[in-house]
Simulated assay, not measured.
Amino acid sequence: MTQLIIFTDLDGTLLNSETYDYAVTVPIIQQLKSLKIPVVPVTSKTRVEVATLRQDVGLSDPFVTENGSAIFVEVNHNPFNKPPGEREGDYYVVDLGCPYVQARAGLRVIANELQHSLLGFGDMTINRLQRYTGLSAKDAQEAKAREFSEPFITPKAVTSEQIVEAVEAVGFKVVVGDRFSHLIGPDAGKGNAVERLVALYQSILPTDETIVTIGLGNSPNDIDMLAHVDHPVVLPGLNGPHPQLGDRGWDIAPVPAPEGWVEAVTAICQKFDVALQS
């Protein structure tokens, strides 16, 4: 017996990178739900951002926020035999990251190490964050609701190698991106979160049942997740896959999100005799 688990990034993967449309994925997600195949968002977004989207899309499975800083499991939809973490309101939380205040303090130390100012989300007003991201005021507010990590504008005058070296010197990790980088705790990471969730799911399965993991992402901050799944799939943009993901031998979806997400998930499920109707 095989238990499929789908781990997915959101922006540019489940959601169209320009319009954030996801409508075509909803029927597939409902079919996966009826087949008890978990669909687990693994994203740089905050808890409140993901909670809003999960409600809209119809997801109830666990989710991972802030680049692998925490796993959230709804108390009313807990698939595991016992609470997987500490209860906070409507969720059990498996904390893999560091407190936000610690990330903020770390960013200041790293800026001193680099001798270069670093502008984090916590330094910006809602209006300023809107100008940098194009988000609505409500979405910008949710993006600023950090609990474990601090995104900052990737400086152009500093190399990614210099950023990583400075971050690691003060005991943090960093996910360097083209526009924004994310300062996360030393034990955080999308790959670590995937491993923890797979172990949790394995603990409730019969000994003769095997987990097969599918991962879908579109950008360098998904590499850690995609490297920890059995079937990694890269969602391309309008100009093809991101240069850092396109030459790794991973499957590439035939078209961008969200249609590419549907086609990739449907194709892999068919390999395991799971028929989905698109």
Results as ranks from 00 to 15, higher is better:
L118S: 15
I37R: 13
I71G: 10
S34F: 10
I29M: 15
P99E: 07
G217S: 11
P254Y: 11
S69C: 11
A140S: 09
V176E: 09
G106V: 07
C98T: 08
D208H: 04
D139F: 05
G217V: 02
G246R: 14
W250A: 12
N67A: 12
P41I: 12
E161Y: 06
A143R: 07
P254M: 10
Q55I: 04
D178F: 09
D247R: 15
D251Q: 13
N192K: 07
I71A: 10
R47I: 06
L238G: 04
M1Q: 05
S44P: 10
L96R: 04
V94P: 02
G85F: 00
A199D: 09
S203N: 05
R179K: 15
A23P: 06
P155C: 02
V93E: 08
A227F: 03
Q3A: 02
P155L: 04
V64C: 04
P206T: 01
L53F: 15
R54Q: 14
V233G: 12
L216A: 00
F63T: 13
S181P: 01
G120M: 14
D9Q: 05
P41K: 15
D273E: 14
H77Y: 01
V57N: 15
A193W: 00
S149F: 03
L276W: 08
K173G: 01
T210Y: 10
S17W: 04
Y100N: 12
G237H: 11
T154C: 10
P241E: 07
A143W: 02
R128P: 07
E86G: 00
A264R: 13
K144P: 02
P220E: 01
N112H: 11
T266L: 12
F63C: 14
T125H: 08
G185C: 07
Q30H: 06
T8C: 14
M225T: 01
E161P: 02
P236V: 05
G89I: 01
N81Q: 00
A105S: 13
I37G: 09
L197I: 01
A137R: 04
D95P: 03
A103C: 11
A227Q: 09
H116G: 11
E147C: 08
Y100P: 07
V198H: 03
A169G: 06
N192F: 04
V229W: 04
T133Q: 14
L245Y: 12
D222R: 09
V234R: 06
V229M: 10
